[in-house]
Design a protein around this nucleic acid. Sequence first.
RNA 1: GGGGGUGUAGCUCAAUUGGUUAGAGUCCUAGACUGUCGAUCUAGUUGUUGCGGGUUCGAGUCCCGUCACUCCCGCCA
Length: 592
Amino acid sequence: MEFSKRTHHCAALTVGDENKKVILCGWVDSVRDHGGVLFVDLRDRYGRTQIVFNPEAGKEITESAEKLRSEFVICIEGEVKKRSQETINSKLKTGEIEVFAKDLEVLSTCEPLPFPLEDNLDVSENLRLKYRFLDLRRASFQKNFIFRHKVVRSVRNYLDTEGFLEIETPYLTKSTPEGARDYLVPSRVHNGKFYALPQSPQLFKQILMISGYERYFQVVRCFRDEDLRADRQPEHTQIDMELSFVDEDVIHDVIERMIQKIFKDCLDVDITIPFQRINYEEAMNLYGSDKPDLRIPEVIHNLSGISKDVSFNVFKKVLSIEEGVIYGLCGSGLAESASIKDMNDLTAFAISFGAKGLAWIRIMNDGSFKSPIVKFFDEATLKKYQEELQAKCGDVMFFVADIKKVARNVLGALRLKLAKDKGTLQYNDYKLLWVNKFPLLEWSEDEKRYSAVHHPFTMPDIKNIDELINDPASVTAKAYDLVLNGTELGGGSIRIHDTKLQEEMFKILGMDIESARIKFGFLLDALKFGAPPHGGIAIGLDRLIMLLLGLGSIRETIAFPKTQKATCLMTESPSDVSEKQLKELGICIEEE
RNA sequence: GGGGGUGUAGCUCAAUUGGUUAGAGUCCUAGACUGUCGAUCUAGUUGUUGCGGGUUCGAGUCCCGUCACUCCCGCCA
């Protein structure tokens, strides 16, 4: 018997294969030894098949079968038999048959496992990450990676038919000062100099447009040395694209049809296009977020007008300052059930997002208002609040009094928390939308200068350059984010393709022509040699997979992810390197 | 940089108000068993309670520090 002569995989056999002689290979999923007859569930990538070891097959094979343990790798030759009616396992795809083993070869043994490989068992993540090769054997992981493969295949097929070319860009490139912290790679040949791993192939894809490729894409790794989150890893994969002779509408359309096709190909779900579009300012006002979760019906309301004449000092004080507002949000169904402690927890939550406090008024089932602060409001005002917030009996009205930026941020976070705590959000209730018209610039108090909200190559939404020069703060950008269920799936912009405008942009960002030349000279050069109007977008592949499958973290979509401290527990990286290596690079480690 | 959660047998967890010998299931080992599919039954092995310090007659439990994993804020064009 030769394992390379495998005839079927472990999900293939059916009653139609009865009496066939087959060779199967795989891992021992479980052993059930009855003393006489012994059952093994044999597992490979495709599925499981029950193998029967009967004493009648001979002494030798029976004895070696008794030595089988979980996760041994074996090859068996045997005969397919239909199971009797009462022994059919309906949970198993191959449950109507079993294979009577005639020959058994142990290809590899396995030590006792550090943790069981069943799905739905919470094993501590550091153990799972250390033994990632075992964790990846679990069925749920295999499902995730098969799905990820399908998504990428669907994307490649689609973009090919749309005329996109897949072109690779360098990983060893130049450090750029804007944006995230770079991962640096020292140069041996050029002592004291460094490459950087790209945060994205941004400039290369723009250059490719100038080089005339018109439509580029790449499934590409991007690196950012910033702190991690459930949906953020130091290296992540983007579906990166750039197109020439397009405006925002063309890009929206190309992406909408791509997303639609992914849903259809990979989930068999029909989604309607075009997606909802909302401007940044509106998103911030209604949802307190630039990535609103539209599964949640409640929105934020501006109650400043209604609150003008209230005697509540906290509100009065805030309304007297510039940018001071009273914003409100309805917490539905909480009035009777939430305890004082729950309210205190929510207040602490609001404070962690920068609020000074959180005011709340319960509307009891009998319609009465209940709150420590209710005495500061007359009945008519309370009614107006209730009406504006569309709160029903049994709801709680939440208020944040602060400057606009803080108030909507806090209520945006509260809106998400209340919905998550209620536990009614369904991952497969997919709500997609575009957020458009982002601000172009934001003032950096630390650096006393403007910085680009998106990046310095983003096209301002202006008629002429004077608008930018005269009042840069109020200019919006031709930039857009794609949002799915409260997560930013991707973003992009129309780019500047004019040298003058690009130089002006650098100037506004506090970069003189000299330093702009040093940092981005190649782009400024390229822009002079026939740059077409162009724009693009990048979609976060890991996040897309996470959201489509309803996973809790992108670590479930990445085969070998890092911990929150950016280490790999399997390879134990990062690690020390030898003195010799350091010397070659001219690097000296400073003791802390 | 900051806030929260978790850390007890290989694994998943329990341990009353701080109370005397830290338990259970599972895994593993051995035995029994010819139709199981989370097999079953019997017996057995398994502990630096993450680590360091403190309070106490006595600490898994309380306090301080520290480490690891994780969630969040900041940060992430």
